[in-house]
Design a protein around this nucleic acid. Structure first.
Length: 207
DNA sequence: CCAGACGTTGTT
DNA sequence: GTCTGG
DNA sequence: CCAGACGTTGTT
DNA sequence: GTCTGG
């Protein structure tokens, strides 16, 4: 799955990933982004903007804000079936910016978990596939924008440590993923597990 | 019909 | 909002 | 995902 | 051990 990641690149380098998209404000460098915190995204509805939203999807119909902490990931395999996601796949897709994510390897019979960081050889930031939504807090009238990260089965490389991984959208497909004129069924292939030539994985002591 | 859930992961 | 379970 | 809390009563 | 908050 994907429950922690980093975004330490400069705002300028992040903007380079998606020409024409500009950041609202400079983004802070962060090594350990946790669910419920702000994440940097490009949303399908706002074609020229990079903005922060909260990690943990709150569907627009939700009565309880607490649902967010359960909705940090969405399985690619069942996106079009699940009530929480099926209405979003054709209308509210997003890209989530990162330059490395963490997975924990569980060691059988020792109860220990070893964190690993996964990133690319060039050190550049890259993008996860996500879904987003807007939710109105009835008490205050505030609109909250939230997102979830789509996961898929681990590729051969990642399966050394874990059975799931986030969906990564390559450079040439980023604009397609954000284009809601393209149906999800025509993009579903992007969520399938595949190998990456320059992916690096390293065990770390601590995040 | 209404009431209640709406999710993923990992472990057994 | 929509589906599932009772 | 991990880290940290996990509780009540009565008094200020 | 399990739930909550970040």
């Amino acid at each position: 799955m994907c429950g922690r990641f980093a975004l330490t690149a400069t705002t300028k380098d992040i903007e380079k990933l998606l020409p024409g998209f500009n950041a609202d404000n400079p983004f802070k460098s962060r090594h350990n982004i946790a669910p419920t915190q702000e994440i940097v995204t490009a949303l399908s509805s706002e074609p020229n903007r990079l903005r922060e939203v909260k990690w943990g999807l709150i569907p627009n119909w939700s009565k309880d804000i607490k649902i967010a902490s359960k909705m940090i990931n969405a399985r690619a395999e069942t996106l079009t079936e699940k009530p929480s996601f099926r209405q979003l796949v054709n209308r509210k897709r997003c890209l989530i910016f990162t330059d490395g994510f963490y997975e924990w390897q569980t060691i059988p019979e020792s109860k220990k978990k070893i964190p690993h960081i996964i990133y690319f050889k060039d050190g550049m930031p890259f993008t996860f596939a996500g879904l987003w939504d807007e939710w109105k807090d009835i008490q205050t009238g505030t609109i909250l924008t939230t997102a979830t990260i789509i996961t898929t089965s681990a590729n051969e490389f990642m399966s050394q440590i874990h059975n799931r991984m986030p969906v990564i959208i390559d450079e040439q497909f980023r604009k397609d993923w954000l284009d809601v004129n393209i149906k999800f069924t025509d993009l579903a292939e992007l969520t399938f597990s595949r190998e990456f030539d320059t992916m690096i994985m390293e065990p770390i002591e601590k995040i």
